[in-house]
Design a protein around this nucleic acid. Structure first.
Lengths: 214, 214
DNA sequence: TTATTTAGTGAACGTTGTTTAGTAATTATT
DNA sequence: AATAATTACTAAACAACGTTCACTAAATAA
């Protein structure tokens, strides 16, 4: 009885078709252009059809949100090869920023936009394991900081406090840029500014910790 | 001919009635509840009437956005009395964070939400002086850092880099909280976490600068 | 008293997301 | 092979949104 399986496969194909189209519209024309009617038009089905594959619009957005975390986790693998924990942590921050600035729509969905959160709250009630994907990334940061502590930096600092602080710093940088709050800095200097800000962190936090150690 | 003036006054009163109602709905039920129809219902006028006092919905949102900056600027006056530039800078950060967390809807409108920006771009074309209100707050930060430099801290750091870095840090903290990305930290510990993060900055950046000086 | 300007509205338009009743086509059963 | 059951899909409608416009009633000017 291979029919059930074929049907299941077709259902899955339709789901990814919808998701890919949604993401394409999202990347092309921004968040407000993910409308069910636009998606339906692009895939040449009626709007109602989408409801056979997703419960509602929020479920589509939530799924894209998850995809973003998968993608970020992929990027983060790059830094694992670095041996020196301090260098790794600095590279970690750099990687985070470049992920955000090269995939601003994904980043927005993952860390700024309110929309996916109705769904997340629903999910967390019946399935606590669903936030796990986002958690993996946080755990990686936490582990990196732990390694730095072992190497003598941040010795008087709680790991979560350090993690939250560093995360806040990089998130602040990219979200001010993505949400266009940096008009006082000329556009063409912005890339340098980000680089300088990361160096500022490197010098004042990471290297300071190093000096304290020696 | 006092009629013209009375009419002008009544027009102004209606505008503030609309704005106050919009803000009330906003505070009560979140951003998505600022709908012209809700506002109209609350003030017991027809939706069309609002268009006699505001060009469109964006103009209402933009005006609330400006009000937010006025309010922030008011809060910022509190720190001007502090003589020691380092203490003042630390207090500045503390004030910024508590403004944001005590007025999350205003903060969201001012530094996170995309909505007000169609209008801002329009304004900037014909009237460059309109971003001035937001700029005042940034200039205050810049000036504080300049004073710190005079006191010997941040001597090798560009002022704008330091300003952007510190701003990013505090913005990161509050925007992660406001947009609910901190579910890995228990709600009841969040207040402490913010305090610790600010101390983290104080110790690693400000006090480090101080040690370099001596 | 009449003419003109002003304040306000009802009804409509074109959008959204979402639901429902109904129609074809496919699969299962006899 | 003929019929019953299930599936895939859609047209049409709903409520709510921002916005516009023709229109009325009131206030002001002539």
């Amino acid at each position: 009885m291979g029919i059930k399986e074929r049907k299941e496969l077709e259902k899955q194909e339709m789901r990814t078709l919808i998701l890919d189209t949604a993401m394409k519209l999202f990347l092309e024309k921004g968040f407000e252009n993910i409308t069910l009617r636009h998606i339906a038009e692009k895939i040449e089905y009626s709007p109602a059809t989408i409801y056979l594959y997703f419960k509602d619009k929020d479920e589509i957005i939530y799924t894209l949100h998850r995809e973003g975390f998968e993608k970020l986790y992929g990027w983060q693998q790059k830094i694992l090869t670095i041996k020196d924990p301090l260098k790794r942590l600095h590279k970690h921050a750099e990687m985070y920023v470049s992920f955000a600035l090269e995939n601003p729509e994904y980043y927005d969905l993952m860390f700024i936009e309110r929309a996916p959160f109705k769904k997340i709250k629903e999910m967390k009630c019946k399935d606590g394991m669903n936030w796990e994907i986002g958690m993996r990334s946080y755990d990686l940061l936490r582990k990196n900081i732990e390694d730095c502590k072992k190497a003598g930096v941040f010795q008087n600092t709680n790991i979560d406090v350090a993690a939250f602080s560093l995360w806040s710093f990089v998130h602040g940088i990219v979200s001010l840029i993505i949400r266009e709050r940096c008009s006082m800095f000329p556009e063409e200097q912005r890339h340098d500014l980000v680089k300088c800000a990361l160096d500022f962190m490197q010098e004042n936090i990471l290297l300071t910790g190093l000096k304290k150690r020696s």
